[in-house]
Structure formats: structure tokens, C-alpha cells
Amino acid sequence: MTEPVLSIRDLVVEFDTTDGVVHAVDGVSYDVHPGETMGVVGESGSGKSVTVMAALGLIQIPPGRIVNGEVLYKGRNILGLDEDELRKIRNKEIAMIFQDPMTSLNPVFKVGDQIAEALLVHDDKLTDDAARKRTVDLLEMVGVPNPDRRFDQYPHEYSGGMRQRAMIAMAMANQPSVLIADEPTTALDVTIQAQVLEVMKVAAEETGAGTVMITHDLGVVAEMADRVTVMYAGRVVESGTVDEIFHNPKHPYTLGLMMSLPRVTGEMQKLLPIPGNPPSVISLPPGCAFHPRCRMSEGRELCRTKVPELVEASPGHMSACHFPDEVAIEAKREASVTGLEV
């Protein structure tokens, strides 16, 4: 296996709020290898976005605070680098695509200029003409029609899907080694989502980058990811290859996510939602943070008292559940309720 291009180690991020300290990220680790796509899955508030924002120094400090951890980019720790060094890494080495293309582009500047700026800030020698030419090429690559004319248009003249394409063009402008896409399709129409995912694949192939695909949508993960990290309440609860995670989940939360996912199979199925709500990240429940919502934990002292470690449940498959092997049994039980095969 190749060396990971991006490696997050034991990252802990907290926020001070009037209501107390928010433990947004609590000891998160995962690796991304060149050319592969790592899907990071979890509900809103699970800390999946904060993890990458903190890695790039894009959270506000204060109220934010990085308590612990390392972010290794090509083996070098970039966490806590000074602003100027981080600035040189952003977009050039690690580029981001954000959730809402409607608000992620600056409304008062031309789309083309905003993309070209990504080139110009990282290359003093680049002329404006050359930047424009390269930008037009990028727009063409991501499937924006009439790129030369589109260069001079403003964001409000672009549709949502087109804006997200422009954001992808911006992210791949400097051929980064890591692409981070934070819910890139969530804000888009379903019909546009598939197209944007296709463009994401093009971008990953063009740049050869390792991709972090942050999403709450298991469908996107199934479509895009090679490996998956599942996060819950600021912690990683399960990780493994996409096949392992989908066919052999080792954590009840992952199972719950899949059971609550509607599938078009022709038959009518019952959906089984995860009971309860995500926990308050200010005061996590003791023991396993998921236990109040977990059917498997009923009557089990261990789940309520001891925080489960993330350990290898089977080769290459990590789980933070005290009873990883019972997930399969639970899956069968739930399958009998819903008529759904995992």
C-alpha cells in the first residue's frame, strides 16, 4: 500500500459557547491515500466538517480550539503551522469544495476571476492572460458550456449545478494532492447531483488526488468511496472498505444509517429510523455515546459506563462497539422486520 497523502491523527477540537464547551471533534483519525476516495459519513454535528476545517486552519480561534492531534500532509505535520505557511498549502496542496455553491462564490466578482485568483495567488509569475486561458480550460473540463463567455459572468448568472462545477474547477486549479468535498451535492437538485458527482470523479482523475468525500448520504458514499469512516458525536465509530461497511457493518450506528435509507427495489419496504436524536455535543452521554439510541445496548452495563475503543473487528475493519460481532445478528433481526437485506 502507498503512503497516505493525508493522515489525521487523534484530532481534538473544542468550541467555547455560552452553553458550555462543545466537543466537536474528539480524537478523530483517518488516512487518505493518493487516488482513493475516503467517504466520511455522519449526521450533522458529528464533527466531520470541523475535522477538515481544523486541519486547514479554517476554524475561528477563539471560540474554536485545537486541543490535540496531528494532521500529516505527505508526512509533515501541518496542524498549527502559521497562517502564511498554511495559506501556501490551501488549494495548492489541499483544496476544498463546499456544500452550498449558492453562497460559496463571492457575489460581487466574476466567476472566472475567482477561479483565476486561485492560480494567481500561488504563482507570482503567472500573467493574467495565462490565468484566464487556464481557467477557461478548467471550466471546459468541468463541463461548463461556453467557458470563455461564462468566465465574465457573475455567480448570480450561474445555476446551482454550474456554480458547483465552477467550485470544482477552482478546487482542481492547482492540481492539488488532496481534494476535500464537504457535502458537495447536498444543496443541489437530485437530477444535478449525479452530474456533479461525475465531475468530481473527473477532477479526482485529472489531479490524481486523494479525495475526502464528506457526506451524510450513504448513496453518495456507495457511488464514490473506496473506504469509509463513520463518525458519531465527534468520534470515529467505524471504518473500513466500502464493501465491508455496506455488507458487514460492525457498528449499530452504521447499521441504523443503512436501515433508515430508502432503496428502490420494486418492493414496498418499511424504513427503520434510528430512534432518538443526536446527542448534545456539550454533554455527551456516559459510556458509548450511541447507547441511548442503540437497541443492542439495552440492559448492558458496559455500554452505559465504558467508552468503547476503536479496535480492529476484522482485518482492516475498525469498530468502536463493545459487541461488534452482534451487529450481524441485529441486522438479521431488523431485516426480518423490514424485509430488507443488508
Binding site: 495559506r87 488549494n91 463546499f98 453562497t103 460559496s104 463571492n106 467550485m167
Partner: peptide
């Protein structure tokens, strides 16, 4: 968001 985008660009 767009200021965040600008920062993420390395501006």
C-alpha cells in the same frame, strides 16, 4: 461562505 472560500483558496 464566500470569505471561507477565499481563505481556502490560499488568499
Amino acid at each position: 461562505d464566500y470569505v471561507r472560500t477565499a481563505r481556502a483558496k490560499g488568499v
